[in-house]
Simulated scan of single mutants.
Amino acid sequence: MATTPSLPDDIDALKALLLQRDGELQSLRQTVSTLELALSVRTLEIEQLTLTIT
């Protein structure tokens, strides 16, 4: 079972942690968006190829 890491008691340290996590979240959202776009492109390519061979 995973344990939750302890959080700092200092407000400034907590703010810094939140800012870091916000940055990580933004990066992950960008990655998801990029992957969704790539998936859409591949789906269109498959549809085009399917129409070509039928």
Rank of each mutant, 00 (worst) to 15 (best):
L44E: 15
L14K: 13
L37N: 07
A13S: 12
L25D: 03
D9C: 06
A16Q: 13
L28T: 01
G23L: 12
L14R: 15
L7H: 03
M1P: 01
I11Y: 06
T34K: 11
E47Y: 10
P5E: 14
T52Q: 14
I46G: 05
A2P: 00
K15A: 07
L37G: 06
I11K: 04
L25M: 09
L7C: 10
L35K: 09
G23Q: 14
L44P: 02
V41D: 15
T34H: 10
S6Y: 02
L49H: 13
L49Q: 13
R29M: 13
R42E: 10
T4K: 15
A16G: 00
S6N: 09
A16C: 08
T4F: 10
S27I: 12
M1I: 07
T4H: 08
L37M: 14
T34Y: 11
G23I: 06
T50I: 07
L19D: 09
D22I: 11
R29H: 03
T31I: 08
S40V: 00
L35P: 01
T3A: 05
T3W: 07
A38R: 13
R21D: 02
M1C: 12
E36G: 04
D12A: 10
L18G: 02
L18V: 05
L14E: 15
L37C: 10
L35D: 01
L51C: 07
L49Y: 04
L14T: 00
L39G: 04
T34N: 05
T3N: 12
G23V: 05
R21M: 08
R21P: 00
L35T: 01
L7N: 07
S27P: 01
L7A: 15
D12Y: 06
A38G: 04
L28G: 02
E47P: 00
S33P: 03
E36T: 03
L25H: 06
M1D: 09
Q30R: 12
T31V: 11
A16K: 12
L19N: 05
M1T: 05
L28N: 03
D22P: 01
E45M: 14
R42T: 00
D9W: 13
K15G: 02
T43R: 07
L17S: 01
Q30V: 04
Q48V: 12
R42K: 14
Q48H: 11
D22N: 15
E36Q: 15
L28E: 10
D9T: 06
T54V: 11
V41K: 11
L14F: 02
L35F: 03
L18H: 05
D22A: 06
Q26A: 11
T4D: 10
I53T: 08
T34D: 15
T50V: 08
Q48K: 08
Q30K: 06
G23A: 14
Q26W: 02
Q20V: 08
G23T: 03
L37S: 09
L18T: 03
R21T: 00
D9R: 07
A16V: 00
L25N: 06
V41R: 08
L37T: 04
Q26F: 05
S27A: 11
